[in-house]
Design a protein around this nucleic acid. Structure first.
Lengths: 124, 124
DNA sequence: GTTATTGTATTAAGTGATTAGTACAATAAC
DNA sequence: GTTATTGTACTAATCACTTAATACAATAAC
């Protein structure tokens, strides 16, 4: 995994987001074991505590759990993972619509804009 | 104007965004004079320099200009303002589509989700 | 039962950015 | 020409947050 950190946000935040996406998109499959804290830390070139912090948040979200001496695992609950994916998507959508509304775009205008932007994006 | 600042972001940033929206949405009309730095500062309950910083960014964007002793004014150039509004909207849309793609939503699914969220939002 | 590997807790240091204080500069108004 | 009002510049202090260092705890493996 390629770790590149922007300087404008905390490392642990970026780790957290990367890992969340990796789980939600299936890169780390349900029930699978994650690399150990120290392993991830070496891999990413950061302090173990920084990784620990990111993983704690994932645990808080219920996406991973830890077993004291064997390591950390992605939750078995595939439904939970899918639920998280939907929750993240709806949050994004909600924020987006609110921002567009503040800019004076009603929903129709918003969708029209999205359609107009077709072709700009890679693939999809 | 009601100034409420969240603790999770710099005040000057929030001022900048508020003021940008006020200009772009016509609350501060083109060519109109803005309140003085010290006036805004008292109104918002912050240090004048904090207001100054936000206004500097607006100036950098070309949305306002200052005349040394008479005050600051919104640009006359209505086209420029509309251009900024579009630019902001397109930026939001771009970021949104990118985030949704990372979550595994293609464009069709994204629009479907937006439609499904109708009724949740006030007015519009 | 010893050891190695795992996660966890606690504390401290560093770092950077935001905000405030204060003084300066320009000019419109009278 | 004086004054009041405006924007501007510079420096310093505060503050909060992130990261690192270090030590502890649990248990699987042998």
């Amino acid at each position: 995994m390629e770790w590149i950190f922007r300087p404008d946000a905390p490392i642990y935040t970026q780790l957290y987001e990367h890992l969340t996406l990796a789980i939600v998109s299936g890169t780390f499959p349900p029930g699978g074991r994650l690399p150990a804290v120290r392993e991830l830390a070496v891999d990413a070139g950061v302090n173990p505590n920084t990784v620990q912090r990111a993983l704690s948040e994932l645990e808080r979200d219920g996406l991973v759990y830890s077993q004291r001496t064997t390591g950390r695992y992605v939750t078995d609950d595939a439904e939970r993972i899918e639920q998280e994916r939907r929750k993240l998507a709806e949050g994004r959508a909600r924020d987006f619509l609110a921002a567009m509304q503040k800019l004076g775009y009603d929903r129709v205008q918003t969708v029209v804009l999205l359609e107009k932007m077709r072709g700009e994006r890679k693939e999809q």
